[in-house]
Amino acid sequence: MFELRRLRLVHELALRGTLAAVAEALAYSPSTISQQLAQLEREAGVALLAPEGRRVRLTEHGRVLAAHAARALDLDEQARGELESLHPGLAPVRVAIMQTAALAIVPAALRLLSERAPDLRVELVEMPPELGLFELTARGVDLVIAEQYPGHTRAHTPGLERDPLGTDPIHLAVASVDPARSLDDLRDRPWVMEPAGTAARLWAVQQCRAAGFEPDVRYELADLSAHARLVAAGQAVAVLPDLLWEGSAVPVSLLELPGRPAREVFAAQRTASRARAGMREVRRALHDAFPMRRTDAVPPRP
């Protein structure tokens, strides 16, 4: 019989690509990973790994076993979920959150959970949505709060499902004394944007290109609070979501973008975890905590 713990290693290697990455993700040493995979090869009776330069790659047999490993891990999660339904709070729920969710959604959600499911342990880790969705597939987290921008739908991954939480209007942000009134007025300004490769960066650049210019991105920062500070100081302009201002004064001037766009904020989970009672409680709390449904929410900005 294959041991599930070893099957997870070959599943992780198929996703992450290197033994070093698997070791880092699972907090093992690379030598331990190698030893466990060697044992798995002996159990399988076929070569699962082949050398490729200084690294290794999965053989055809290895890829077949990795696919079976993914299904075995799903079945294990489904079984644990059904057991948990008899005893809610049995397992903690680990959630990957983007920065604006940490500011505007999660505090209220945790307050609701403390009332509804006080024995449930929720663990949070901040990750950009791209990394969070990958770690969800790799079972590094149980739930992800992510976003997608108008016209830029994220890829749908087999085995994952989404629960829309709400929409979040997006505005141009300029210094309060800035005379600009539209995107066209900002073609010669320095911009601050999120790092290259993120959905937010791609979407913001496309808005500028649609307006007929290439943005001068001088500042590349993941922290949206830092974006706001640069804008307020008159050193940059930006495209920022309204959730960033939830519960605080807005230190900049907000201008409408063409079409008044809004991003969709959603929670994603593995389909195999659907039966977990703790997961259902967390999803319900996130849905109820979204600002547009809360009685203490800041009114929508014009």
Rank of each mutant, 00 (worst) to 15 (best):
L86F: 09
P107Y: 08
Q99A: 13
L83K: 03
G140H: 03
M98F: 14
V125R: 13
L136N: 10
A67R: 15
R139F: 04
E123G: 01
L83A: 14
H87W: 10
F134I: 07
M127K: 05
R71D: 12
I105W: 02
A79E: 12
D119G: 09
Q148C: 07
E77A: 15
A66L: 10
I145R: 06
E84R: 07
E60F: 00
R80I: 00
G81Q: 08
E115C: 03
H156L: 13
I97E: 01
A138T: 02
A117K: 05
L58T: 07
R139H: 13
G140I: 03
D74K: 03
L133Q: 15
A109M: 10
A104T: 03
L75H: 12
A70E: 15
E77K: 02
Q148F: 11
P129E: 14
D74Q: 10
T153G: 01
E115G: 02
H156K: 10
G89C: 06
Q99L: 13
L120G: 10
Q148W: 11
T153M: 06
L113S: 08
L83P: 00
I145C: 11
A72E: 13
L131Q: 13
L133K: 13
H61K: 00
R154M: 12
S85W: 09
D74T: 05
E147F: 09
R71F: 01
G89M: 02
R111D: 14
D74F: 04
V106A: 01
E77L: 13
E126S: 06
L143W: 08
V141F: 08
T100N: 15
V106Y: 06
E135V: 03
E126L: 05
T137K: 13
V64Y: 00
E130Q: 14
E135F: 08
Q78V: 15
P88K: 06
L120V: 10
E130G: 11
R154C: 07
R94W: 07
L75A: 14
L143E: 01
G62P: 12
A67C: 00
A69S: 12
L112M: 12
I145F: 08
M127A: 08
V106H: 03
Q148L: 00
V144N: 06
D74C: 05
L86E: 12
L143C: 09
P118L: 08
A146T: 14
L124F: 11
L65S: 05
S114A: 15
A79T: 11
A72S: 12
L124K: 05
G132C: 02
R121A: 15
D74I: 07
Y149K: 05
R63A: 07
L112I: 03
L103W: 14
G62K: 08
P150Y: 11
I97M: 02
Y149C: 01
S85C: 04
E115Y: 02
L131T: 01
A96K: 01
H61Y: 06
E135D: 11
H61C: 06
L120R: 04
R71L: 14
Q148N: 06
E60I: 07
V122H: 05
R111L: 09
R57V: 14
G89Q: 04
P92C: 11
I145E: 09
I105E: 04
L113E: 04
P150F: 09
R111I: 00
A70H: 05
I105M: 00
A138D: 12
L73G: 09
D74N: 09
A101D: 12
I145T: 13
R121I: 09
A155D: 07
I105D: 02
L113P: 04
I145Q: 04
